[in-house]
Design a protein around this nucleic acid. Structure first.
Length: 270
DNA sequence: CCAGACGTTGTT
DNA sequence: GTCTGG
DNA sequence: CCAGACGTTGTT
DNA sequence: GTCTGG
């Protein structure tokens, strides 16, 4: 699944391909459901807009359903009442720096940051809908589509967000026909093998594992609490390291082949 | 026909 | 809104 | 996803 | 423990 992600940087590629503004994504390292996120929509002309994360179908009586519809399964998106019309008529692209996935252990959960190994944005596939509240105000919201994990991501979790490669963005955003069969092949884990965890290569995953951090008594969720959205309140070397790491994962990942390297990087910041 | 649901996640 | 179950 | 709440009564 | 709200 996908329940948190990070945004930062200029969305150049999507802008170029869709012929819209090169917009600056806000610097957010903890984007959570029910908050507003920049997304590219096409209705029918492509444009950027802010959508609330957690889809509220047009027929919903109140917004409470939104907090439960943060993901839509690719396998059933055409059948589900909450999703099918959006899938046919209102697809969107959500660019991000990367996303977090939690790995479950017997007595704790461990978040991992998933990102590409170069500085490209990940582009997640979404669907959105309009909703009108009883008082007449309008709200637009979205779900992220999920699929089976690819072999790399499966080491952390069995589901992952659908990541669209640049050659598929235009087809995804083309709503001139309501036929969607040609889109189904885009909704698999294929073609996403080029991202990695916090190591520089799959082979280094074990030694570069973030769980090593728990051995110095600081788990990532605690760091999150020190990094409110868009506001860096740094209270420890480790937290600052994570601010830097999250803002430039490609750069810092390559320096973290093992725990000693990680400490070296952290110490090097001071 | 009307009434009621409409979703994902993980875990067992 | 639209489908399913009664 | 995590964090935080987790309730009822009557009255307007 | 489990649901709701962010």
């Amino acid at each position: 699944m996908c329940g948190r992600f990070a945004t930062r940087g200029k969305a150049r590629e999507i802008a170029r391909q869709l012929g819209i503004d090169e917009i600056d994504l806000p610097e957010r390292y903890n984007v959570a459901p029910t908050t507003f996120v920049l997304a590219a929509v096409a209705d029918p002309a492509p444009r950027w807009t802010l959508l609330r994360w957690g889809l509220i179908p047009g027929w919903a009586k109140d917004i409470s359903i939104g907090s439960r519809l943060i993901n839509a399964r690719a396998e059933s998106i055409q059948e589900k009442a909450s999703f099918r019309s959006s899938f046919k008529r209102r697809r969107c692209l959500i660019p991000c720096l990367g996303y977090y996935e939690w790995q479950r252990f017997a007595h704790h959960k461990q978040p991992w940051f998933h990102t590409y190994s170069d500085d490209r944005h990940m582009v997640m596939a979404g669907i959105w809908d309009h909703w009108q509240s009883p008082d007449g105000s309008e709200l637009e919201s979205f779900s992220l589509i999920t699929t089976d994990s690819n072999p790399l991501a499966a080491q952390v979790h069995h589901r992952m967000p659908v990541l669209l490669s640049s050659q598929d963005w235009s087809a995804w955003m083309d709503h001139s026909s309501e036929k969607t069969n040609h889109l189904i092949p885009l909704l698999g884990p294929a073609g996403t093998l080029i991202f990695r965890f916090t190591g520089s290569a799959p082979v280094s995953i074990q030694c570069a594992m973030i769980p090593q951090l728990s051995s110095i008594h600081c788990r990532i969720p605690q760091i999150f609490s020190l990094i409110p959205d868009g506001l860096l309140l740094v209270r420890s070397h480790l937290a600052l390291f994570f601010c830097k790491f999250l803002s430039s994962p490609a750069k810092y990942c390559t320096e973290m082949e093992n725990f000693s390297d990680m400490l070296r990087v952290i110490n090097g910041l001071y």
